[in-house]
Design a protein around this nucleic acid. Sequence first.
RNA 1: GGACGAUUAGCUCAGCUGGUUAGAGCAUCACAUUGACAUUGUGGAGGUCACAGGUUCGAGCCCUGUAUCGUCCACCA
Length: 754
Amino acid sequence: MERNIPKVFESTTSEPEIYKLWESSGYSTPEKVEEYLRENGLNVEKPFTITLPPPNANGNLHLGHMCGYSFHDAFARFNRMTGHPTLLVPGKDHAGIQTESAFTKVLQNNGEDKWEMGRDEFYKRCYDFCMQNADNARTQEKNIGLSADYSREFFTLDPKLTKIIYETFYKMYEDGMVYRDKRIVNVCPSCKTALADIDTDHEERRGIFAYIIYPLIDEADKQLAKERFGVEGITVATTRPETMLGDTAVAVNPNDPRYKEFIGKKVLLPIANREIPIIAEEEVDLETGTGALKVTPAHSPVDFEIGKRQGLEIINVIDEEGKMTGNIPDRFKGMGTTDCSRALCGELTELGLLVRIENIKHEVAVCERCGTPIEPVISNQWYANVEPLAKKALEALHNGDVKVIPEGQQKALEFFYENIQPWCISRQLWWGQRIPVWYSGSKKLHDWLNENQGKTVGDFEKEFNVKANGTGEIKLGEDSPEGIWEQESDMFDTWFSSGQVPFSTLGGPEGDDYKKYYPTQMMIHARDILFWWTARMIMFGLYRTGEVPYSTVLLTGMILAADGSKMSKSKGNGIEPNDVFQKYGADALRLWYYSDALPGSNAPLREEKIKGNRNFVNKIWNASRFILMNIEDEEIEKIQGKEVADTDRVKATKEHIEKVGKYLEKYQLNLGAETIREFFWHELCDKWIEEIKTEIKDQPVGSDLRIEKLSELLWLLKKNLKIMHPFVPFVTEAVWQELVKLGLAEGVLMVEQI
RNA sequence: GGACGAUUAGCUCAGCUGGUUAGAGCAUCACAUUGACAUUGUGGAGGUCACAGGUUCGAGCCCUGUAUCGUCCACCA
């Protein structure tokens, strides 16, 4: 008969309508699902919760985000359809340094200046900027069909969340886990903030390797050196000549026969004209350079450690913007490091102390965000000693309280915990959560007293010839205490807050949602932020709640361009999510991703593949359409009440559903996707529909045989729609609603039980 | 330097605790069909499962080694 069902599933128009239906149903809210289950006398299982990775609030979502969410959504839908009140918690991340630099650029393009604007105004404007982008991201999330509970959407800078982050900090402070320390830290001269080691990348850059003679002091030593090396000094090799102004020693290996006699002697540091000792250090490699290492504790992490062991003086010669500073000849002051290096090499050549310069390629630490080479600088920062937390996290991994998929990545995480370093949690930014600390008098006073143990406020006043106006002690809290207190200007590292989202988004350890939905069940995120994020979430979870925040971490890979290269804006080989939605629809994209993107491995995206999946989506639509068009109006009533016999087809379908369920429980979406496609297409469509076509051929409308066969067919269709729904929610729901229109089904497929 | 992973059809990849003739999608070839389906159906061709050893009644899967590629970690001046 004629029924007005379009021949093609129009994803562009249907998908938004279906999403609206889901929204108005309210079933993204777990309480609503629970209510539904109870009203229908269905089993209510344990809640199923996932905190969604909040995208950075400063930009658009890319395909990787979308596809990641399609994973979350598949598990959520499956759980919702198997009796679990299901909660996907959506949110947006303020993403500290990244947003700050992005918004600074926006301002620059407007001809505005961050420094003129000032801290408060910047914060306000940046907030608005984020809110705008967040709207955008939210729309995109909905496009992929994400059944998240937007009534619970969070922003990481929401005061409610910040309160919980601060509580964690206070607790850590009381437990002696956070402290100020003067250490060598990575500073990005462009972003002008400290960075944790993990926030740096290593890149191969071209550089120089300069051989410089440090003349010996004593005549006898000079003679010996002359005989042995042909020059009256020790030759050191360095990739950074400018740091020589801060040298406080030359280190040699005690087992190195070339230098044995010189240990304990002194050399004259050229240009700076300071005497520095030659010291013995096991770590010095005999093979590298000349075997003699210049030691600059202030500007090299290795040297810093050596300096600490040997009690060397620390001389700062480079500031946080990468400019020469400190107690150095005036002509170098304020120079950039590269210019200074060049100038020094020139002067050394004139002095006859520069042996040669080699051009080399070497690994350089660069800022993960902007690629600027890192400047190691000594400075006071807030640190968190996370070692005890790492130990607990490691235990949790060993106990199997948390499982990482794929397994290989779990080992990487264990390795990270085993080698964990103090975490620098302060950032010199304006955007983020301000560290809730006040210093009596000034921060400078506090730090000075801290690093000069035994000295007094009076000593400080003398040293700097100022009035201290305080005691240098610290008070925690957001509001200014009585008296003269200086507020901490630094912000928390953004991971300090995102590391707590599994409980901070549920209201913290006292929250109602927390009591009901914590610990969550899964965490799904991109592999490349394993250490930044999951590592911290597990530690914070154990620390604040005594429980792991989730039992399974599923890592996703990256989506690559068709040729296997990374998608990037500069290469122009990226694919816009909206183009994919327009051309093929969300279901097709989802199904492609499930099939091709295995946990932890990257997936090259080919358009043909999405097209193939689009054809399958359309197949679902058309098979359903065929069935609907074969059922005559007068047959509907009879079919409604008809029990279906346990035919081979019915049996096979039941087995199939069980099989797919098992795949989902084992997180094997690829096998699930393959199985539903195979079964629906090649069993139901190719075989069974064809069989039934012949079985009911020439049977009069309303006859028992027709009713029996059509009922069976309808049963098969519905069962298939349900089990396919987690994978291709839009088209299955669209078909379901067609059934509802005819009175052959009820409600919303989203909460139908499989 | 260390850790982890990969190597299976022309391409992209599956293959669960080892069990007959090793699978899918796309591409390709032949035939059929205008059907519920921007098609679809049926059938075919295509693989020494990187290499070399070993364990086993039996190995794509387990063990040892080699090669190539990739990712992450690391302070080599």
